[in-house]
Computed example of a mutant assay.
Amino acid sequence: MSSTKFILGLFDDPDVMMHGIDKLQKNSVPIYDVYTPMPIHGIDDKLGIKSSRLGYAAFMFGCLGGTTIFSIIYYTLVHDWPMNIGGKPAFAVPNFIPATFEWTVLFTAFGMTITFFFATHLFPGRAPRVMELRATDDRFVIAIDAKGNIPHEDITNILKEAGAVEIKHNDRKYVSYE
Rank of each mutant, 00 (worst) to 15 (best):
F107M: 14
F107P: 07
F107N: 07
F107Y: 14
T108I: 11
T108R: 08
G111V: 13
G111N: 07
M112N: 10
T113I: 15
I114W: 11
I114M: 12
I114V: 14
T115N: 10
F117Q: 06
F117D: 11
F117L: 15
F117R: 05
F118A: 14
A119F: 14
T120W: 09
T120Q: 12
T120V: 08
H121G: 14
H121M: 14
L122H: 06
L122Q: 13
L122A: 09
F123I: 11
G125C: 05
G125E: 03
G125K: 05
G125L: 05
R126C: 07
R126I: 14
A127R: 11
P128Q: 05
R129N: 14
R129S: 13
R129Y: 11
V130E: 04
M131T: 09
M131S: 05
E132N: 08
E132D: 11
E132W: 05
R134A: 08
D137E: 13
D137Q: 11
R139Y: 04
V141D: 02
V141S: 02
V141Q: 02
I142E: 02
I142Y: 03
A143S: 07
A143K: 04
A143L: 01
I144Q: 01
I144L: 02
D145Y: 01
D145L: 00
D145C: 00
A146F: 01
K147G: 07
K147V: 00
G148R: 04
G148I: 03
G148K: 02
N149S: 13
H152Q: 10
E153K: 12
E153H: 12
E153N: 13
E153V: 12
